[in-house]
Simulated assay, not measured.
Amino acid sequence: MTVSYSAAWGGESFDGAKAALFIGPRLLVIRRDDRPDIAHPGALDFPGGGREGGESPEQTLAREMREEVGLEMGRAEMLWRRSFDGATRPGRVWFFVLRMGAGAEAEIRFGNEGQGWGLVTLDAFLAAPDAIPALQARLRLWQAL
């Protein structure tokens, strides 16, 4: 699916973007750094982060995915996207559900944020006591569609 960056978000103000990325049947998760100065230290997270300059949500996510895990968002199929109120600070954030084919994990090049990465089933992520609750809620909303 090709997404027009300007048409996808209508220019509304937002602060960042995150994605639940399925690689085959499993979700890519990142273990957050265990530092007291960040929200949800040590929790299971998804690729994504803060907006820079005049980026669109898709541009923000594409940059963050390259920086954090070395994957190109343009290779992913977009399954869903929606904006939400921020979970850890005021503002809007975009949440995406994306899918890449099995085997894409061989291309992951982990960046310098977080403790590591892994692949988990959707059910395991939704049940994980150490996952970020807002991300679990957003995935449940998508799953219910």
Rank of each mutant, 00 (worst) to 15 (best):
W9T: 09
E52M: 13
G91Q: 12
L141R: 14
F46V: 07
E58G: 11
A87E: 15
V93Q: 12
R51M: 10
I108Y: 02
P133K: 12
G24M: 07
P133M: 12
D37L: 00
F46C: 05
G42R: 04
F14K: 10
L122I: 02
L126T: 02
D123C: 04
A7G: 12
P57L: 05
I23G: 01
H40A: 10
P133S: 10
K18I: 13
M65P: 03
G50M: 14
L135I: 04
E52P: 07
G116L: 08
R32P: 10
M1W: 00
F125W: 09
A7K: 15
E58K: 05
E52L: 14
G111F: 07
S83K: 11
R26V: 01
R81Y: 13
D85G: 08
D45C: 07
R35Y: 05
R81M: 15
V93P: 04
M1E: 07
L141S: 04
G54E: 14
T60V: 13
M73N: 03
M78I: 10
P41K: 03
A127T: 09
R81G: 00
G74I: 06
K18W: 15
P25M: 07
L119N: 06
A124E: 10
P25F: 01
P47V: 10
A124F: 00
Q115T: 07
R140D: 07
P133A: 12
I132N: 05
R81E: 13
A134F: 10
P90L: 11
A20C: 03
Y5F: 14
L139M: 15
V120M: 02
K18A: 10
G74W: 06
G54L: 10
A39W: 03
G49T: 02
A128V: 05
M73D: 01
F95D: 00
L139F: 06
G10T: 14
L135G: 00
Q136S: 07
A8M: 15
L141I: 10
L27D: 02
R75H: 13
P25K: 09
P129E: 15
P129V: 11
D37Q: 08
G86F: 09
F110R: 11
A102Y: 00
G116M: 11
K18Q: 06
A137I: 11
E12S: 13
I108P: 04
A144P: 01
E105M: 01
E72G: 13
L71W: 02
